[in-house]
């Protein structure tokens, strides 16, 4: 893999002086509040479904579908990217971020048709999650199996 280019030493300081600092602490707090809030909401939904007599598997599936559906709706209405600018990782990391990456890519490429546009591009961003999710699942399963053998 090629190495990242280095910025000229005399210029690096000038750029650093002029670049506004990223508000790390504030970003972390916002991400924690929003991401945490989503988790609380999901848990609440799950508890309600369990209370109404669903099995644990059914309740999990239903609340995930609700979150994904709501994200797709909010993305389509044009709010998700604006909220994510404020909330950052709080809206990027949960499953809503995954749903947003697929919906936004599908919307974006609608102009090239359903097959070559939406079909080919819906996983443009989410594909990386699927690929590395599968790869890490394989290795974790391998480790688990080895521990069982020992």
């Amino acid at each position: 893999m090629a190495k990242k280019p280095q910025i000229a030493p005399h210029y690096a300081q000038i750029v650093k002086d002029n670049e506004p600092k990223r508000p790390l602490a504030a970003n972390c707090l916002k991400a924690f509040a929003v991401g945490g809030g989503l988790c609380v909401l999901s848990q609440a939904l799950r508890e309600i479904f369990l209370f109404r007599g669903m099995s644990a598997n059914e309740a999990t599936a239903v609340y995930l579908v609700i979150l994904i559906g709501l994200t797709a709706l909010v993305t389509g209405l044009g709010f998700y990217d604006k909220w994510a600018q404020w909330a950052g990782a709080g809206l990027g990391v949960p499953i809503t971020g995954f749903a947003n990456s697929m919906t936004s890519a599908a919307m974006e490429h609608r102009s090239e048709g359903f097959v070559l546009g939406v079909g080919c591009n819906a996983f443009k961003l989410a594909g990386a999650v699927i690929v590395f999710g599968s790869v890490s699942a394989f290795f974790f399963a391998l480790i688990k199996w080895m521990l069982g053998v020992l």
Binding site: P20, D81, G92, A105
Partner: peptide, 17 residues
Amino acid sequence: ERQFRYPNEYGVQKPSA
């Protein structure tokens, strides 16, 4: 946005630079 960055409706936090 679409050509150089991400889909328009994709939620990514941009820095102030």
